[in-house]
Design a protein around this nucleic acid. Structure first.
Length: 222
DNA sequence: TAGACGATAGCCT
DNA sequence: GGCTATCGTCTAA
């Protein structure tokens, strides 16, 4: 049985708190607050071969009801239906026809709001993330830890974590037994967070609904 | 069923 | 910093 151990060394076997999933209640906080509070939380991924990798969230964006940039703004379709799902599930969308982007659904069942996870910094098994990203079979932890392709940007992190829409759209992100879940981390202090406008959108472009850890080298854009 | 449009990323200057 | 490949999805007809 795989045990998720917190820390930089995956070989640690002593009793360290296992990664504990953020509860459904976390996603029922107002979406802007949830987006800000997801900073510092962990993305925990177990791959099909049993190997695991963990990243720390350093950049998010909020999308809400009434927000013209939100995919739900024009109503429910087959592609965006997951946004209406239970809080704490995943909504994966495809951008520019080729990039997968991971969102955590927030707000009550039937209220289509979500937080886009835009960047992570590697915590464990960066080498595996880089191998996933490049398709190469070789990668050292040291070289992976300085390669921004594995975490800086929503399309990039999805590729590194092997998160695709067919597999993970609608997936439960609150289940520690699952292949993908979000776990509580060290809270990030207010003065360490930068709040700014969202990236790559034309509607609602002036809403300051993007949050990132100011000091992180893994933020996708400043 | 054709046409328009991106919540991007990579390459080039 | 600018340019653009590339294709899933929506919309109109």
């Amino acid at each position: 049985m795989t045990r998720f151990v917190r820390g930089y060394n995956t070989s640690v076997t002593e009793t360290v708190p296992a990664y504990s999933p953020l509860p459904v209640a976390f996603y029922l906080e107002p979406t802007l607050l949830a987006a800000r509070n997801l900073l510092g939380a962990f993305v925990v991924r177990r791959f099909a071969d049993g190997e695991t990798a963990v990243g720390r969230i350093v950049e998010t964006e909020a999308y809400t009801v009434g927000d013209p940039a939100c995919h739900a703004f024009r109503g429910k379709t087959q592609a965006n239906a997951a946004m209406w799902g239970r809080p704490g599930t995943a909504y994966i969308h495809i951008n520019y026809g080729l990039h997968f982007c991971l969102n955590a659904v927030t707000a009550m069942d039937g209220v289509p709001e979500a937080v886009l996870i835009r960047a992570i910094e590697p915590v464990t098994n960066a080498a595996r993330l880089l191998r996933n990203y490049t398709g190469q079979t070789e990668a050292t932890e040291a070289e992976a830890l300085s390669d921004k392709r594995i975490g800086a940007g929503p399309g990039r992190l999805s590729r590194a974590f092997a998160i695709s829409k067919p597999v993970f759209n609608g997936y439960d992100l609150t289940d520690a037994g699952g292949d993908l879940f979000l776990a509580a981390g060290e809270p990030v202090a207010e003065e360490a967070v930068t709040t700014t406008t969202r990236i790559g959108i034309t509607k609602g472009a002036d809403f300051p609904w993007r949050f990132y850890v100011s000091a992180s080298r893994w933020v996708s854009r400043r």
